[in-house]
Amino acid sequence: MIVRRGRSEDLPWLIEHDDASDDWIKRCIQFEEYFVVELDGELAGFLRFSRFWGKIPYMDMIRVLPSLQRSGAGTALFRAWERAMVGEGAQHLMTSSEWAEAEPQAWHRRNGFKAAGSIDLRIFQSSPEIFFLKDISGTPEA
Score class of each variant (00 low, 15 high):
62 I>R: 00
26 K>D: 08
1 M>K: 11
63 R>T: 00
15 I>G: 10
129 E>H: 06
90 A>Y: 00
89 G>H: 09
55 K>Y: 15
96 S>H: 05
106 A>E: 15
19 D>C: 03
2 I>F: 09
142 A>F: 10
135 D>Q: 11
50 S>N: 13
59 M>I: 15
48 R>F: 08
116 A>I: 04
121 L>D: 09
63 R>S: 14
43 L>Y: 02
126 S>A: 12
65 L>I: 12
105 Q>V: 06
55 K>F: 11
139 T>Y: 11
132 F>P: 01
136 I>Q: 03
132 F>W: 02
68 L>A: 04
12 P>R: 03
98 E>K: 02
66 P>L: 07
134 K>C: 05
93 L>P: 04
66 P>F: 14
31 F>Y: 15
19 D>L: 15
29 I>D: 00
42 E>P: 02
69 Q>R: 15
56 I>N: 02
9 E>K: 08
72 G>I: 00
102 A>F: 13
118 S>C: 06
1 M>H: 15
66 P>R: 09
4 R>I: 14
78 F>Y: 15
106 A>M: 10
105 Q>L: 08
35 F>V: 05
18 D>R: 05
75 T>E: 13
63 R>Y: 14
126 S>L: 04
117 G>C: 10
20 A>E: 12
100 A>V: 10
28 C>Q: 01
133 L>R: 02
56 I>M: 11
21 S>Q: 14
5 R>Y: 06
137 S>G: 14
47 L>Q: 06
119 I>E: 15
74 G>W: 00
22 D>H: 08
30 Q>K: 13
8 S>E: 12
108 H>M: 09
112 G>H: 00
3 V>S: 01
53 W>E: 14
79 R>W: 02
67 S>E: 10
105 Q>Y: 15
13 W>R: 02
22 D>V: 10
93 L>I: 01
